[in-house]
């Protein structure tokens, strides 16, 4: 079993609290920057027993930033099993992006939205 790290992408003032929990804070204020950070986090790898693995297993990202990630980019970013990219609602409250994402997943799998 391998050890991985976690990261969180968001504006400075919101994600500061997560730093205390031991997550790697990655500051980004606009979606374009966030996408760049996502790519670089995905690229980072570590050597374990001579095997190269992803450094980060989970990357949390603030919803308002995740909104700006284009479907193309998202597809590329989430193609491999790791890292998992998970949108989180920010302090402004939920924007429904997370549930929207679940909906698209269901539609993709089943052909129609059966959740609602």
């Amino acid at each position: 079993m391998n050890q991985y790290k976690m990261a969180i992408i968001g504006p400075r003032e919101t994600i500061l609290g997560f730093k205390a929990l031991g997550l790697e804070p990655v500051y980004a204020t606009d979606p374009k920057e966030a996408v760049e950070r996502l790519y670089s986090l995905k690229r980072e790898r570590t050597e374990v027993d001579g095997e190269s693995i992803n450094k980060y297993a989970i990357v949390f990202i603030m919803e308002d930033l995740a909104r700006g990630v284009t479907p193309d980019d998202y597809k590329k970013l989430s193609a491999e099993p790791l890292p998992a990219i998970i949108p989180l609602p920010s302090h402004l409250g939920t924007t429904g992006y997370g549930l929207q994402k679940l909906k698209t997943i269901v539609e993709k799998a089943v052909g129609m939205d059966i959740l609602s």
Binding site: Y4, L21, I58
Partner: peptide, 22 residues
């Protein structure tokens, strides 16, 4: 903060889909 988090990841195989277990 002295908090350190480590994440152990296992992958489970369900119908040839690799599913992570954190």
């Amino acid at each position: 903060s002295t908090a350190k988090t480590k994440l152990a990841v296992e992958t489970k195989n369900v119908m040839s889909v690799r599913i992570p277990k954190f």
